[in-house]
Amino acid sequence: MAEQHTPRSLIVSLYGAYGRTPDNAPMPVAELIRLLAVLGVDAPSVRSSVSRLKRRGLLVPQRTADGAAGYALSEDARQLLDDGDRRIYAREEPRPEDGWVLAVFSVPEAERHKRHLLRSRLARLGFGTAAPGVWIAPAALYEETRHTLQRLRLDPYVDLFRGEHLGFSATAEAAARWWDLAAIAKQHEEFLDRHEPVLHRWETAPGSSEEAYRDYLFALDSWRRLPYADPGLPEALLPAGWPGGRAASVFAALHARLRDKGAEFVQPFTAGGRPSRA
Rank of each mutant, 00 (worst) to 15 (best):
D83A: 05
P28A: 06
R87L: 12
G40S: 01
D76K: 12
P44T: 00
A69F: 13
L58A: 03
G57I: 05
V12W: 12
S45A: 14
R56H: 07
R55E: 15
R8F: 14
I88F: 06
L59C: 01
L59D: 01
V46W: 00
G16E: 15
A43T: 03
R63F: 11
Y71T: 07
P44W: 03
R91Y: 04
Y89K: 04
A65P: 11
V60R: 14
A43H: 00
V38G: 03
N24C: 13
L53H: 03
R52Y: 08
D98P: 01
R56K: 14
D85H: 03
S48P: 04
L80S: 14
E93M: 12
R63S: 13
L53G: 00
R63T: 15
T64P: 02
A69T: 09
A90I: 04
D23K: 14
A65R: 15
E75T: 14
L36M: 15
L58S: 00
P28I: 05
D82T: 15
D82P: 07
D42N: 01
G99R: 07
D42P: 00
L53Q: 02
R87Y: 11
T64R: 07
E31M: 06
G40L: 00
Y15I: 11
R47Q: 05
E92F: 09
A43I: 01
V29W: 02
R20I: 15
S13P: 12
L35K: 01
A30T: 10
P61R: 14
L14G: 07
K54S: 08
R34E: 15
S45T: 02
Q62V: 15
D98Y: 08
D23H: 14
A30N: 04
Y15C: 07
S45C: 01
A37F: 14
R55M: 09
R95I: 01
L14I: 15
E92D: 12
V50A: 01
Q79P: 00
D85F: 01
Y18S: 06
L35E: 06
A77V: 03
R47M: 04
R20F: 13
L81S: 03
Y18W: 08
G57L: 02
L14V: 09
V60G: 01
G19P: 02
N24W: 10
L14P: 13
S13I: 10
T64G: 05
D82V: 06
D42V: 00
V46S: 00
Y18A: 02
V46Q: 01
D76F: 04
L81P: 04
K54M: 13
D76V: 10
A72M: 09
R47V: 04
S9H: 15
